[in-house]
Design a protein around this nucleic acid. Structure first.
Lengths: 353, 353
DNA sequence: GTGAAAGCGCTAACAT
DNA sequence: ATGTTAGCGCTTTCAC
């Protein structure tokens, strides 16, 4: 239990009266060690407070047991959940995660990736906004022979591994919920349109409208943003929508933070949700449950996204010849009451304003 | 520009026609290399696509250039901001951050810390909830000779380094803002009272009350929580406060998420903010700016907290004999309009309900 | 089941 | 200004 700073494997070997190899076998849990010898070594390890030097092990074994985590923005609920899931899964498998730069721009990425490969991370998890530019980075890493998996972005016929949410389906579900309640004029506040997820949620919205025989009207689609600026973008987006077309009866906000910002704008405009206007959010982030009113939203298991991504990485580390894997997780509608019949139908029934 | 997987320093040396040592000097930017030689080496590095092996460097130089980041909860704004600041500062100094377990319980900490020291992190940044139990962990690390700094927790006469926000002062400012508007009956929704920050904000609240000649009444102090469950705890806390004492005219919520949850409870109760009840939050998290109404809050520069913590770590890595440093950052009130005169004073002036 | 030898890829200390 | 010699602390390979 003493300080272990300088205790090395050969001191343990001497203490236990065995060779260095035998100690190595014991700390690596090899089976070909006599029970009695093993015990003797373990005692010596405890007595000396020996801690194997992971750096030396890494050099000799060529296994760093480290994963690179290249994330975009810790201020977005999706990403923090992914990181949480990824880290848990990594630890479960005796891996640690090295943080790539969360704030660096795309230009700086090659530099950081290089630093990551210099440290011999055995795999890299990209949890960034996504977008075609990112693919070059992935490919560069992949050429290097380092397994990589991308999260929050995918496309048909891709040659890389990915774990993502089925955002098209999610966008459709959100929109269909509003359609089922009889809404005919449904606006949309999107995420940043440079991201695949916003594009996909928008496609889902569009598909749902068209299936219902409604036409897509870009007039009532405004662009917002993710991360910390989401609230403000939703607030401003809603204000604009109210100016552009006061006849809208429902809004699909592509994340809950934008939805909450939009709720604030509506309240300031003297409109009630859901009596005057229905709203569906996306993400099931914590703010959705206690907003006024609580937001009907789309839930996605983002922690699982992170865990699955790490599992893919570990499989590919084990067997480099494995083909890329793509996983697409489905979403689920969480009903919370920010949706009701449109104004006119309530009125027809003799309801509120 | 070719694949660099197996290019080693001696291949570069051969290519450049120099010794391994000279290559080492060049890649480490030593000054005692002739300009012409340096150029020749650099050319060889590029030609071969050489990437120094950080693990081998670490073993030989006994410098991992890695910091351990032991955080508690990525779902709390304070912690994500600290991590952001810490990571940026680490990269700026050519360090990387290794993620300690974000979700592990206190019991598991020793195990994870051990894994971190086995990897020879040169310093450890603790960004956890804080509390006396954590100190044992810090001390264990410190005994090991590894510099450690704790964030979000400190106490007088401590023997460890820390960077924290002056929560007592922050709590006082929040409360004084309400007092200045003439509020006499101010409730408080606290963070988890096992944390130092909640205790300190509560002390500040209490001090402000007492300075104003008001007595502290535990009846109108309820405990909430941080992280994702904040919203709900603020919502429930507010409901309870309304039951316990309908005469309160103001609330200090110890973080903005609880404040937002409380706003929802008030709205459901048919009470308006600030006309019927004033509210001050804490953290200046993104939700505060676009809540209804926008929340007056206490701003703290949390990104800077992370950066300063890393700076301390780096100083102590450079010179292990340095005494521990304690930094306490001040807060700032952000006025947003969720505060006004108490009901009775408005009434006296012929105002609202 | 255990040990000896050889290196992993680099840097430190001392040469020259 | 450059090269030589020894390791850093471990694992791997191959003996026995």
């Amino acid at each position: 239990m003493s300080v272990s700073k300088n205790v090395t494997i050969d001191q343990v070997a001497r203490e236990a009266g065995v060779s260095i190899q035998t100690v190595s076998r014991v700390i690596n849990n090899r089976y070909d060690v006599a029970a009695e010898t093993r015990q003797r070594v373990q005692d010596a390890v405890i007595r000396l407070g020996y801690q194997p030097n992971a750096i030396a092990r890494g050099l000799a074994s060529r296994r760093s047991r480290t994963l690179g985590l290249v994330t975009h923005d810790f201020n977005d609920h999706f990403f923090t959940q992914v990181v949480t899931g990824a880290e848990e899964e990594a630890h479960r498998n005796n891996y640690f995660c090295m943080l790539g730069s969360s704030t660096c721009s795309l230009d700086e990425m090659p530099k950081y990736l290089r630093l990551l490969t210099e440290r011999h991370v055995e795999g890299v998890l990209f949890a960034r906004e996504g977008g075609p530019d990112e693919l070059d980075q992935i490919n560069r890493i992949a050429q290097d022979g380092t397994p990589a998996v991308i999260v929050g972005f995918h496309r048909d016929g891709q040659t890389f591994s990915s774990v993502d949410i089925n955002n098209i389906d999610g966008g459709r579900r959100a929109t269909e919920c509003l359609l089922q309640y009889g809404h005919m004029r449904i606006a949309c506040i999107t995420g940043p349109l440079r991201t695949q997820s916003a594009q996909d949620r928008l496609s889902g919205y569009r598909l749902a409208l068209e299936s219902a025989g409604l036409s897509y009207d870009p007039e009532i689609v405004v662009e917002g943003s993710y991360g910390n600026s989401s609230f403000g973008s939703g607030y401003r987006g809603m204000k604009r929508l109210l100016e552009v077309d006061p006849s809208i009866t429902a809004v699909f906000a592509q994340n809950d933070r934008m939805g909450v910002g939009a709720l604030t704008a509506l309240q300031q405009a003297g409109l009630r949700v859901p009596e005057d206007l229905s709203m569906v959010g996306y993400d099931d982030s914590p703010e959705a449950e206690y907003s006024a009113p609580p937001l009907t939203t789309i839930r996605q298991d983002t922690v699982r996204v992170g865990a699955l991504a790490v599992q893919i990485l570990l499989r590919h580390i084990e067997d480099n010849s494995l083909p890329p894997e793509q996983i697409l997780l489905n979403t689920e509608l969480v009903w919370r009451g920010s949706v009701s019949l449109p104004r006119d139908q309530i009125a027809r029934k003799g309801g509120a304003t």
